[in-house]
Design a protein around this nucleic acid. Structure first.
Lengths: 115, 115
DNA sequence: TTTCTAAAAAACCTTTCAGTTAAATAACCT
DNA sequence: AGGTTATTTAACTGAAAGGTTTTTTAGAAA
């Protein structure tokens, strides 16, 4: 199973704990212990989540004494965005149709739904 | 386990088969059989993938005789985009830094890497 | 050297996931 | 009714995910 990069990235992102970790890292580097602190799970569990994020390239790690500071990496997020971009037209069009529909409703019956 | 919506959406997207199905649907409605055709897996397997996409709200299904046409739904993709948006600044900044660095390299040694 | 702290690895368990084949539904077509 | 077509459901399997506790590793500090 040669799992493709985008799948690896998306499945890494499909976990609230991991997304919370990324959110924390968007504020700056942090050690494993610091990252684990807000969660009720064990430290090894957090360590595993970090490994998943690292395999996906979403974070990288340094070495500083006995700490291994983590930092957010931009590339995979940019890749998700590029993939998503090909659907942007689609959802914008949907939005436009909805908008037009609502405008049409107003024209036909200006007082409807105006509570 | 009250799985949150974004996690459900992302894990639905974290599969190449399911993304291929969405790509096909971005071209227009299709039946289960039509969607299954390009894949080497069994029809029930595709049916399961569709169920995952449906649970995530990424597709919806109609009824037309013995066919159940699927169509792409925009909302969850828009939601992923919104979430991603909060990181956009981050990766753009990274890109800018890289760009600045490359410009700096050129200034210092205009002939370097110009093969 | 011993001891403390930060983190990772190992071993294990339970649940979920992605696929299979075989059987059941449902709607159409004689 | 009986048969064909489209799709879902059921029952099963193997592998991966996400957690646990216990054991190692690695460096700092004594």
């Amino acid at each position: 199973m040669p799992e493709d990069r985008l799948s690896t990235t998306l499945s890494a992102l499909a976990d609230p704990t991991r997304r919370a970790i990324l959110a924390r890292l968007s504020l700056g580097e942090a050690s494993v212990g610091e990252l684990a602190e807000p969660f009720e799970m064990s430290l090894p569990a957090v360590s595993k989540h970090l490994k998943v994020l690292e395999r996906a390239g979403l974070i990288s790690r340094g070495r500083e004494a006995q700490w291994r500071p983590c930092r957010l990496e931009a590339a995979p997020l940019r890749d998700v965005n590029s993939w998503l971009d090909s659907y942007r037209g689609f959802w914008e069009e949907k939005f436009d149709r909805l908008d037009a529909y609502l405008q049409e409703l107003q024209k036909v019956d200006p007082d409807a739904e105006t509570n």
